[in-house]
Every structure is written in C-alpha cells, then in structure tokens.
C-alpha cells in the first residue's frame, strides 16, 4: 500500500515556460507597457554606444576629406555614462514596479494555484520567467531600434564617411553588450516580485477583499 501522504513532484521547466508565455499573451496591454520601458532604455543605450563608437572617426574622416585634421574629442563622456546609468535604473524600477503590481493583483490566482498543488519554486519560476521573456523581447527590439536610429542619423550627418567607419564586428559587440545588460536588469528587477509571489500562502485564495 502506498504511504498515505506522498511528496509532490517538481514540474519540468517547460511547464513554467508554457504558462508564463500564456500569462503574458493574455495580459497583452500590460505586457506591452512594460516592454516599452525596456525597449526605450536599451535602445538609448545601444544608440549612445553605437554613436560614440562611430561618430568621432566618421567626423574625422569627413573633415579630412575637406583637408582639416582634428584629434577625435571625447568630451561629455562622463555625462553620457551618467545618463545611461540613470535610464537603466529607471527602467529597472519600472519593471520591478509593474511586476509587483501584477503579483499583488493576482493574489487569488497565486493562492489558488497553491491550493491546486503548485510548489513555491514553481510560482517563483513562473513570475521570473514572465519578466525574463518580457526582458528578452524588449532587449531584442531595443537593440534593433538603437542600432537602426544611430546608423540612420550617422549616415544622414556624415554620409559616406560614416559608412566606411561602420564595422560589423563593432556592431555585434555593442548588440551583445546591450543584450546582456538588458537581460541582467530585467532579471534583477524580477527577483523581488517573483520571490514575493512564491511566498504567497494558499490561504490567499480565500481572501475576498481586493
């Protein structure tokens, strides 16, 4: 005879992924709002990096073509670093806030899932994955947007001089750097809300107030 009470199994990650994706799809409006925050922050970061990598050389090349030799200047560097940091921080707080709201709104849903046998670790994964997917999508769009805008502006301002200074390897490096940062800030932002969700008690399912 099996023991009266057994241990609950741990679900594979694929299940959490499946449910997380569905939750995002259904709450599309909210998801898109959070997404836009990430897109803007990462696009800004990518734009700044790309412009700073290419503009000095493009400017020099343009002036050289007109017979003027200048040393590439790097003034205002610390100001941009400050701006980028600030934008990333704002983005992180935005994501965290949106996730936290989503967790608090869904107290009954989370409590119910616990009543149906969900483990804390499953709820944690669910909410963490939700943020991570948003982060990944936002980062992807943000990188693409940032690259497109910076290249467009550079080629408008410097024409051929810009194009001859755009190297695939530089762009790949910038895209990779932006992606890592985008994912890292969403992961960091998601930690507290996901933990909060996982800690929610099954009895939350019984709460009637909002």
């Amino acid at each position: 005879m099996p023991p009266a009470i057994q241990k609950q199994i741990r679900l594979p990650l694929s299940k959490a992924i499946e449910i997380a994706l569905r939750s995002l799809r259904v709450r599309l409006a909210r998801s898109i709002l959070t997404l836009i925050t990430i897109v803007m922050a990462i696009a800004f970061l990518t734009y700044i990096w790309t412009t700073r990598a290419i503009e000095p050389a493009a400017k020099a090349a343009l002036l050289q073509a007109q017979g003027i030799i200048v040393a590439p200047d790097s003034s205002g560097a610390s100001r941009t670093v400050w701006l980028i940091t600030l934008s990333l921080l704002v983005c992180m707080v935005g994501i965290s806030n949106a996730m936290l709201m989503s967790v608090m709104e869904r107290f009954r849903e989370i409590g119910t899932m616990k009543c149906l046998g969900a483990l804390d670790s499953f709820i944690l994964k669910l909410f963490f994955l939700e943020s991570l997917f948003l982060g990944a999508a936002g980062t992807l769009v943000g990188v693409a947007l940032g690259l497109a805008i910076s290249i467009l502006l550079l080629s408008r301002n410097y024409g051929h001089a810009a194009w001859s200074n755009i190297h695939g390897s530089t762009l790949i490096l910038i895209a990779a750097g932006s992606s890592i940062i985008g994912l890292a800030i969403t992961a960091a932002a998601a930690m507290y809300p996901a933990w909060k969700a996982a800690r929610m008690q099954p009895i939350a399912a019984m709460r009637v107030d909002v």
Binding site: I5, E109, T112, C115, L116, G117, D120
Partner: peptide, 24 residues
C-alpha cells in the same frame, strides 16, 4: 512543504465562494 503540496493536489479538492478559476 512537498507533502503539503501533494495533499492539496491529490487528497483535497477546494471549491471557493468566488470560483477562483484562473482567468487566463
């Protein structure tokens, strides 16, 4: 915790006043 989750999953079925279906 694992045994309690199993209990809630297999031994007990809960029905709520507010239905508590997962809306999505």
């Amino acid at each position: 915790a694992l045994e309690l989750a199993w209990l809630r999953c297999r031994k007990i079925g809960y029905i709520f006043q507010t239905f508590n279906l997962i809306p999505v």
